[in-house]
Nucleic acid binder design. Structure first.
Lengths: 214, 214
DNA sequence: CTACCAGTGGAACGGATCGTTCCGGTCTGC
DNA sequence: GCAGACCGGAACGATCCGTTCCACTGGTAG
């Protein structure tokens, strides 16, 4: 019981431990793509049976809650890390870039309401708000933020970035960075010299929406 | 028999004509709120029975198609109207404001894929693209647009505005205007003097997402 | 070496949802 | 009057989905 032979490969315990990881990853991918995807889709994506899921989580709600809480913790972690950055504006914009890249917004806000939150999540959410406010105030103090912007504008900004979505996840990331750059420029007082990032959106790149869904 | 008339305007034909309007309006409201809402929700919102719907449309797909096509026509109409505006930048930004206000983006892009489009819609979509490009080029010619912005960035911009959503529709409109102002400022080369419009988002204004959804 | 059982795949079940059809009733226009 | 346009809404059948259940397998303890 104490020590499994080889951790790299076979072993029932090893497979189970690996499945923990694989399932969470699949769940993240699937539910980010569609917050009300069926549980079977997660199992399919993970390449495991449904039992493997129900062995780990009491039900769908449990899984969603965990996923959302993970996102919240990620948000808090990124904010704390950003507060360590000396330059005020850099701390602010880098934080947003990290959050956008990790798609934390979809993970938290878009999954919220599909489960009953725990008290700990409430506390974490409050802390997240405080940290964001701190970063925002530092950015404001740097004088580079429009004076009429408020912390809550970050909610609009993150929503705008999360709304960008194309079939290819990597391309989605690039376009979100571009969107973020435009929004940050719009919230800024000093005109930026940097060009808009990423390959610009191309003609027909959004046509996939017109193809029949599901 | 236990049904009193209770109508303000007499005439069966009049009621039918009124229902045409009421149903379309209800359908717009309902499907804008949730693109895959059940047909019964539209009937309920319109205050009519389901038959009143099926008398007018062959099926759900038919209704969706009509709604989407209406949105497309609205887009084209607004673009044509905007092209009449003498000032290049004003034509551009006013067009976007009208489109955002009418929520045309949700009506078209978000409903696309839920039905098989007609050829006429294809033509209209193409014309819409050309008109948007014309407006964009005029804005660029005015020198007020960042040179590295492209027409397709309008897709990102509209998506960002459509993503703003709170329970109160009027408030949603205000917040979308604010989002649009930030994005336009971000796409612009000259710093704008106008402050961000509308009451700024308030603390807790986005908390409704955390309340349990249906 | 062997008996056991943690861990698994996936079929089966029951409930919910939704598009569409159908029928009985009402009221208008003629 | 009365034919039929028009309506409300129950009923139906097709999915879809969360969860349970069961047979099976191979690592592991003793």
């Amino acid at each position: 019981m104490p020590n499994p032979p080889a951790k790299t490969l076979a072993g029932r315990r090893a497979q189970a431990a690996r499945n923990d990881e694989v399932i969470l990853e699949a769940a993240r991918a699937v539910f980010l793509d569609d917050p009300k995807a069926p549980i079977a889709a997660v199992a399919g994506r993970a390449g495991v049976g449904i039992s493997a899921l129900y062995r780990r989580y009491a039900g769908k709600e449990d899984l969603l809650r965990q996923l959302c809480h993970d996102g919240l913790r990620r948000y808090v972690a990124e904010a704390e890390a950003a507060l360590g950055e000396p330059d005020d504006w850099t701390a602010f914009s880098a934080f947003l870039a990290r959050v956008v890249d990790a798609d934390v917004h979809s993970l938290t806000v878009h999954l919220a309401g599909t489960f009953t939150p725990t008290e700990e999540m409430g506390r974490d959410a409050m802390r997240a708000g405080e940290l964001a406010a701190a970063l925002f105030e530092r950015a404001r103090a740097s004088g580079r933020l429009r004076p009429d912007a408020v912390v809550q504008d970050l909610g609009l900004l993150l929503e705008a970035c999360a709304a960008v979505r194309v079939p290819d996840p990597e391309r989605t990331g690039q376009l979100r960075r571009r969107q973020l750059a435009v929004l940050l420029a719009g919230l800024s007082t000093v005109p930026t010299a940097d060009p808009l990032p990423g390959p610009a959106p191309a003609a027909g790149e959004f046509d996939w929406r017109w193809r029949r869904r599901e």
